[in-house]
Amino acid sequence: MGKGVLYVPGIAEIDDIQTIASMILLGTVARTAAKYETDLQVPTVSPAVYTVAEEVVKASYQDVGRADTYRSEQVRYITSEQFAYVAAVNGMMLRDKPAANLFLGGFFAESLLLAETGHSIGAIQIAGTANVHQMPFFVVACDYTLIGEEYYAASALLSNDSRLLGSLKSSDTVKVVLIVVVVIGCILASSGITAFGDWWSTTR
């Protein structure tokens, strides 16, 4: 009890859709943290992400009427260097021993370094990324992992807003259509009919 939450938004820049999705989720996390007066720390790897994250967290504290509990040190710019950032975040974990670590964003070689350190301090860990090569590391070291599209769908599900949920429904419909197209393509290609595949080809 009384321990905080560490939110790591990945090491991708703000123009990466994974970071934008992470900022959306950060809003929900910050509102919950503010509501329960739980300490929230957001170390960032990019000054642009820092600027956006600070705005999101500040606005979230205002939204739940806890603007007075927001501290400017909660959202920090650490460094733009990958492993220096890992060293700083691991240090924060080992010193502050947060109760929960959230790794949501674009992660690369640092994913396992962060997740294993978090595991060693006994924090509950939730990870989400669309980087396929980092998913196994998160699956091994974290309690819950949002894989690929789950990560993008999380903000819509958390909001419970009908229009956002509708977008999930529509992407599911598109997925069914794509599956049908892929199956038809496989059958036709296996039967030696290439016209369908050629029609979709981008290298004509």
């Binding site: 959306i24 929900t28 599209e149 993008y152 819509a156 956002l164 997925k175 794509l178």
Partner: peptide
């Protein structure tokens, strides 16, 4: 598909949490 859905939500202003 998730990228496309998120992008459309942001561009059309349906997703406003980041504001």
């Amino acid at each position: 598909l998730g990228v496309m859905a998120t992008g459309i939500r942001l561009i059309l202003g349906i997703e406003k949490t980041y504001g």
